[in-house]
Simulated assay, not measured.
Amino acid sequence: MGAGDAFVEPVWERFPLITSNSYARRWIQSCASLGLAKNTVAAYMYAMEGFLSFARERSLDLRSTSQEAIAQYVGELRTQPRRLGASATRIDSGGLLSNATLQQRLTAVRLFFEFLVDEGLVRNNPVSRGRNTSSSRSGARSEQSLVQRFHKLPWIPTEEQWTALLAVVRDESRRNRCMLALAYDAALRREELCELRSSDLDPAHRLLRIRAETTKGRRERVVPYSDTSGQLLRDYLVQRRGLAKDRQALFLSESPRNQGAPITLWTWSKVIRSIALRANAPSFSTHTLRHLCLTDLARSGWQLHEIAKFAGHQSLETTRRSVDRGHRQASH
């Protein structure tokens, strides 16, 4: 783990099947000990709890799980309904698990069996990265994923949608306007924004330190913000003095019930959802401003590798997908 990382003990009582399975518990424990992000560990636990439920229903022995059993598991995943709230509007997967969720569930199971192989508990991993298929023309063999991967282009608001969003944002609190401005200026992910600390600010040079433990790639970066965001930040800090129960967290809850506590990811998601619905732009999300910033950087002439470094991307392909939608939209 890095110097800034802290070990987070998994919440075992929420996952009884993992807790009662020594292999699964040891694997999750190793993931946490290696310093994986707590959201990643939580996602792996949800995936493993589901797989263990599948295995229990079919009386499967994990040590002798076959590829056929994994195929049955994938088939069952494809029929599982998505758990969405009553106000959900996404219909891309027809009410079933999204492609990204399928990939995530299968990845967790594959990594678990890799752990069992490394520990000498099983000989082969039944969840291969792909399955061999032959070409009808050349006879050559290639890898085809068990679940075909789809990459959705990020949503970028039109001029009309952006105008509507700005009109709604004008009536938001100082905190929310400041957070929205910084999310755009610094292309921040939700976790990076909500977990900013006062000590991460460098107001003299208008810079933000994004700590490694809050990032997806576990790499620290320093990013600038605009003079407009600086003014919003100064206004918010004046208000924050009356809320500051927590001296470390930059953005604090304004709710009477949790006033002064660090803002949660869930609270910020609800703020964004409320803005999206009032602006009649339901696709607006906590990630939209990050994509919009990266798109604008590409439009202004930044090179792909420069944008990748600014965004904290480990892969240029990720950066390319982030800005591709903006290029297509600008060409119409």
Rank of each mutant, 00 (worst) to 15 (best):
L52F: 00
E76N: 12
P262L: 00
L237E: 09
V222C: 09
F115Q: 05
L121W: 06
K270F: 08
R219L: 12
R26Q: 13
L265D: 07
Q72V: 04
Q29P: 00
Q144Y: 02
A140E: 12
R241C: 05
E119Q: 14
Y184Q: 05
G260E: 02
E13L: 08
N132S: 15
S59I: 06
T89N: 06
A55K: 15
A86P: 04
S98R: 08
V147D: 07
A204S: 13
R174N: 13
A183P: 11
R25P: 11
A249S: 06
P203H: 08
L265A: 02
S33C: 07
A311V: 06
N21I: 03
G35I: 00
V109C: 09
L232H: 10
P157Q: 03
A279R: 01
S269K: 12
T288A: 04
H291M: 00
A167T: 10
F284Q: 02
F7L: 15
L277C: 11
S53C: 13
A71R: 15
S30A: 14
L166C: 15
L208D: 04
E220F: 03
G260N: 01
F54E: 05
T89S: 11
D200H: 07
R273I: 06
D185F: 00
P203W: 02
P126V: 01
R278G: 03
R56I: 05
R234E: 14
V238I: 14
R328Y: 01
E195A: 04
R321M: 07
T107V: 10
P10W: 11
G95S: 00
L208E: 04
M48I: 09
N124M: 13
S285G: 07
R241D: 04
Y184L: 00
A47I: 01
G312I: 01
D324N: 10
R190Y: 04
N21D: 15
I156A: 02
Y73H: 06
L207R: 15
R234Q: 14
T295S: 01
R90Q: 14
L297F: 09
Q144M: 09
E213F: 07
S20T: 11
L153F: 00
T65L: 10
A42M: 10
I28E: 05
P16L: 00
T101W: 08
S283V: 03
S93L: 00
R25T: 10
N258M: 06
A88R: 07
I156V: 05
F15A: 02
V223Y: 00
R174E: 13
Q29W: 11
C31Q: 09
L277A: 15
P203Y: 04
L121A: 09
K216A: 01
Q329A: 03
S253P: 06
D92V: 02
P224G: 10
Q29T: 15
F113H: 11
E143D: 15
L96T: 11
W162H: 08
E114S: 15
E159S: 00
T79D: 12
F54P: 11
A204I: 12
D227W: 14
K309Y: 12
S136Y: 13
L297Q: 04
D324C: 09
Q80N: 12
I91P: 07
A244N: 10
Y236S: 11
